[in-house]
Amino acid sequence: MEDLLEKLLEAVELGKVDKKSPYPPNLKDQDGAYELAGKALEQGCKPDEILEKALIPAMANVGNRYSRREIYVPQMLMSAKAMGGAMLHLKPFFQSGETKRKGTFIIGTVTGDLHDIGKNLVSMMVEGAGWEVIDLGVDVSTEKFIKAIEEKPSAVVGLSALLTTTMENMRKIVADIKTKYAGVKILVGGAPVTMEYCKKIGADFYSPDPQGAVNYLKNLAS
């Protein structure tokens, strides 16, 4: 069984989605994350074990390698997709409540901004770390963030912006959220954002890449 989990970890890390997936070329015709997760369950592995011993560590490796610039966005995306393949088997357990997420992360690109690739990468990696992600999309207003928080008051919030103009809109959104929900933690990111700016507007954390956000959330959850 340990062997199977190790294989699953490797499949996710290398981005092998399922048997028919041609990527990566050196694993052609071998089982992918989809098949391996199915087999692990069949052999009596607990869904929690699959998450903790294979999927989450695999995505953490991927995130760290991306932060160190050892791999690039395409490989990270293939790993996220492979994780998604394995998750198809785990979904029923989340729905029944047998397996729990680590928490909820609400993310959106702020008012006036339509960029979403960066935000999507953060969503994927946070999901890969075992969190439920509510992606509100782009051009998200304070009202939309607040409404989502109302439904999940224990959630952590992530804001993304790509221009200095829309970065300024973060300031108001952070202030509005903090006025209503003082305890809600807010992460900010996107090309023009810095740690200095994060502190200035009263947000809780800034990271230049998704893994920084994942590590911060990990500390929060533990």
Binding site: V73, P74, L77, M78, A80, K81, D116, I117, N120, M124
Partner: peptide, 18 residues
Amino acid sequence: RSKKAMKEGDLLTGYIYD
């Protein structure tokens, strides 16, 4: 097209279009 591919779970294709 990029957004559509990403939404449908075809992450890499969406990124390549971008």
